[in-house]
């Protein structure tokens, strides 16, 4: 009886262990940017200005015009 139990139990445990080994968490550890701790760059504010962006857009068109 005991041995019979073992005959069932050991493979069962083995299978369970195997299955456990195959398990992979679907959750992934992601690194999200923290809050910037450095010196303030005035360019960050400058770059939000539509006039600044327009200037760069015009520059791009000038650079890439094949004439």
């Amino acid at each position: 009886m005991k041995t019979r139990f073992l005959f069932v139990a050991i493979p069962l445990v083995a299978v369970l262990l195997l299955l456990t080994g195959c398990y992979e968490s679907r959750d992934v550890t992601l690194h999200d940017a923290g809050v910037y701790k450095g010196q303030t760059d005035p360019l960050v504010e400058m770059s939000a200005d539509p006039a600044y962006q327009e200037r760069l857009r015009e520059r791009l068109l000038m650079v890439q015009t094949d004439r």
Partner: peptide, 8 residues
């Protein structure tokens, strides 16, 4: 945390 991104 030394990175930052400009508005554009």
């Amino acid at each position: 945390d030394c990175f930052y991104t400009t508005a554009d």
